[in-house]
Design a protein around this nucleic acid. Structure first.
Length: 425
RNA sequence: GGAGAAAUACCCAAGUCUGGUUGAAGGGACCGGUCUUGAAAACCGGGAGGUCGGAAACGGCGCGGGGGUUCGAAUCCCUCUUUCUCCGCCA
């Protein structure tokens, strides 16, 4: 959500930005908002004047009552009653106008960074940099589901029975590897100075609607029957929600947090749960990083954050690359975003394992997350990035550490979490 | 799940029974000053933060959130949320 002042003062910029994102159908909204805003302020002004008048007269009644001038007081009461009718009418109008404005404002995309590549969809995303050699071994790498199955590491048949498609039992060393990776990811971020946090795994609807649109909510979030609660789709939801309606002391910024949570997603729509294996599932686990900082420090953190993820995967012998999200593929709330993709030696291409985003003050404005200095309050800049989401991260790890004989190497970094094991076979 | 108590500004806290100079007493912290070589202490002085409209003057909102009664609500009523105490249940 952008500042409405931007529409008042520089609506061409807002329109230009909409065009850059190939959302031309939203262009008329800008003028509509501008008109509604003018009208809203006019109505508010009228209302304020009447309320002011009413307040003054009411105070007079107080004085008259004290002086026992009942008749005069009664007359004033009648006078005020007339104001109240008008005020009620104006307030209704004010409410309707501001709702309309808010509804439209929510759909206006955030102003993207100048250096975001312009493109209509994900096919126009731009590779930035490769880290590590994308090696293709001279033997075949089986599908991850087959690798894991051969090691007795997964049971999807039983999961289908208990929970349906999109769920899984991880077993034995593979389950342990899964946990080891998460523990390592946690400690990796703690060592970077991030504050470890385990958040609530369910959140209320007002928090959800603060972080996503209704359509997204419907497509992603599981609702708890009979309660105003949703299972989180990512800990970002509860981590950002943590600061809803608060003013953070400026000396506490930047807040650098790393959170663990299971994540639940319906995965309704485009892709669905149609793929074999553990790539797209209803339930996964994630170590996340979240940063709240001053605007001027935002880009600095953005660059640090994706680099942390790269460093993390490199320490696990996984080649990665960064892929910059183009304007059309960028979610409306984001200023800039890049994916960290892991190399798949089997498919001989990169696939997404994480996503780093800077949202400017858009998320903070929606949720009223502010800080304060001598010039007053301001909305903080929010960022989030994946350290490790797994089983997806597990797949990347397994493919890249797979040996011809079906075993999986455990790199140095992970061994303390695997009881010293150097190999899974 | 049951019973009770509470939520007031950065923090503590008065006011709520008895609605009207309470746009919120009093502390603490904070800022400015006196004193001091400097600081502390003491003393004097200052301001509610926020938000919306306005170029400004000024005005609207605002005592956990929402609604209601009333000319007028921190104060009365309803509702939601949260916290605390006790009981029950439970990893």
């Amino acid at each position: 959500m952008i500042d409405i002042k931007l529409i008042r003062e520089n609506k061409e910029l807002v329109k230009e930005n909409i065009k850059k994102k190939f959302q031309d159908k939203k262009l008329p909204l800008v003028d509509e908002i501008e008109m509604l805003d003018i009208k809203n302020r006019e109505v508010k002004k009228q209302g304020d004047e009447l309320r002011s008048l009413k307040n003054t007269k009411s105070a007079q009644i107080g004085t008259l009552m004290r002086d026992k001038k009942t008749e005069e007081a009664e007359e004033l009461k009648k006078e005020i009653a007339q104001y109240n009718e008008k005020i009620a009418f104006l307030e209704q109008e004010e409410l309707e106008l501001s709702l309309k404005i808010k509804e439209k404002m929510m759909t206006i995309p955030n102003i993207i960074a100048d250096d975001v590549p312009i493109g209509e969809d994900d096919s126009k995303n731009v590779e930035i940099e490769k880290f590590g050699e994308p090696v293709v071994p001279n033997y075949d790498i089986p599908h991850h589901a087959d690798i894991i199955e051969a090691l007795n590491g997964v049971d999807k048949v039983s999961a289908g029975r208990t929970s349906g498609n999109g769920f899984y039992y991880l077993m034995g060393d593979i389950a342990r590897l899964h946990s080891a990776m998460l523990s390592y990811a946690r400690d990796f971020m703690i060592d970077k100075g991030f504050n470890y946090c385990i958040p609530p795994f369910m959140i209320r609807s007002d928090v959800v609607s603060g972080v996503m649109s209704f359509e997204e909510m419907d497509a992603m979030m599981y609702k708890i029957e009979g309660e105003d609660l949703y299972l989180i789709g990512t800990s970002e939801h509860s981590m950002i929600g943590k600061f809803k309606d608060t003013i953070i002391k400026e000396e506490e910024l930047p807040l650098t947090l790393t959170s663990y949570s299971p994540c639940f997603r319906k995965e309704v729509g485009a892709h669905g749960i149609e793929e074999r294996g553990l790539y797209r599932v209803h339930q996964f686990e994630k170590q996340e990083m979240v940063v709240l900082c001053k605007e001027e420090e935002g880009m600095n953190w953005y660059n640090k954050m994706w680099q942390y993820t790269v460093e993390f995967f490199r320490s696990l012998e996984v080649p990665v690359r960064t892929l910059e999200c183009c304007s059309g593929d960028l979610a409306d709330l984001k200023v800039k975003s890049c994916d960290v993709e892991a190399w798949s030696p089997r498919q001989q291409k990169y696939f997404e394992v994480g996503s780093c985003s800077i949202l400017g003050d858009a998320q903070a404005r929606r949720l009223q997350i502010r800080s304060k200095n001598d010039n007053g309050t301001y909305y903080v800049t929010t960022l989030n990035n994946t350290v490790l989401a797994t089983p997806r991260g597990l797949i990347a790890f397994i493919e890249n550490n797979y040996n011809e004989d079906g075993s999986i190497d455990i790199p140095e970094a992970l061994r303390p979490y695997m009881g010293g094991k150097t190999i899974i076979k």
